[in-house]
Write a protein that binds this DNA or RNA. Structure first.
Length: 263
DNA sequence: ATGGCCAACCGTGTTGGA
């Protein structure tokens, strides 16, 4: 079983690259973020042609997540509210950032964590609050069956300095402030394991490179796309990699896919 | 070096990304 996560920065712009990648890398489930399209306009047919089902939760212009699965998923739900209830979910489902579904004995959770814009901005506060709600959401899922969670997504947080090409000044930079790290760490304290780090301990491995600074050429990147597993599932993981090949293409997403292989 | 690039929108600039 292979599960992958990829922030594609618009599924319509990246459609050919994503379907090509899927043909070359026939994973069982592909989690997409930043699809940037309403559900009515999501290109489902090209995925069905490849033998995949698409489960989507999108909005106009921004955000948007999708689960592309070879086998039909069960218990698919979009947003926090179906799991947490309307009261706790509040307005957080206005932005389409959460979708989950079950395949076999694994629940896949696909997340697009808010970026946060700038430190101390309104969006930054939103990001920190969103991560508190996420903890509640995942805690709730842990109490359901199956309790094996594979949590994939663009987390917009680099937890360690080795996840950043140049950590100097990171305390004041979005994605690496102490508050963001603490907020994500609090989520992970539910008992979640960064599966990429099960296999790779050194730095220099990234999943996002800024378009603007030509960061990919010099491998000036950040590792902000993650796959977190519950312990039993982590024991079944035999590999986890970042595929930088699509980032080398013309007109690429600024993120690369991250993949986990499970027994 | 606080710039740079990219995508969506009904747009000839603005917003958001990270």
């Amino acid at each position: 079983m292979k599960i992958a996560t990829w922030n594609v920065n618009s599924i319509r712009t990246r459609l050919e690259q994503v379907t090509n990648w899927l043909q070359e890398n026939p994973v069982d489930v592909l989690c997409l973020q930043e699809t940037k399209v309403v559900d009515e306009l999501f290109p489902i047919a090209p995925f069905e042609t490849l033998g995949y089902q698409a489960y989507i939760s999108g909005q106009k212009s921004y955000n948007g997540v999708a689960l592309i699965s070879r086998q039909p998923l069960t218990e698919v739900s979009q947003g926090f509210a179906p799991i947490l209830g309307e009261n706790i979910a509040g307005n957080f489902d206005e932005q389409k950032r959460v979708i989950t579904g079950v395949i076999g004995d694994i629940r896949v959770v696909n997340l697009y964590v808010p970026n946060g814009s700038a430190v101390a901005s309104e969006k930054y506060e939103y990001k920190l609050k969103w991560l508190i709600v996420l903890r509640e959401y995942l805690q709730n899922l842990l109490g359901k069956t199956p309790s094996n969670l594979c949590i994939c997504g663009d987390f917009n947080v680099a937890l360690e300095d080795i996840d950043i090409h140049n950590p100097k000044g990171r305390e004041t930079k979005i994605m690496a402030t102490d508050l963001e790290r603490q907020a994500l760490q609090t989520v992970l304290e539910l008992g979640l394991i960064d599966v990429f780090r099960k296999f790779t301990s050194e730095g220099g491995h990234y999943s996002w490179w800024d378009y603007r600074t030509g960061g990919f050429k010099g491998n000036r990147g950040w590792r902000i796309d993650h796959i977190y597993l519950t312990p039993g599932l982590s024991d079944r993981a035999t590999n986890s990699t970042i595929d930088t090949a699509p980032r080398k293409l013309t007109q690429p997403s600024d993120h690369a896919p991250v993949i986990v292989t499970l027994e």
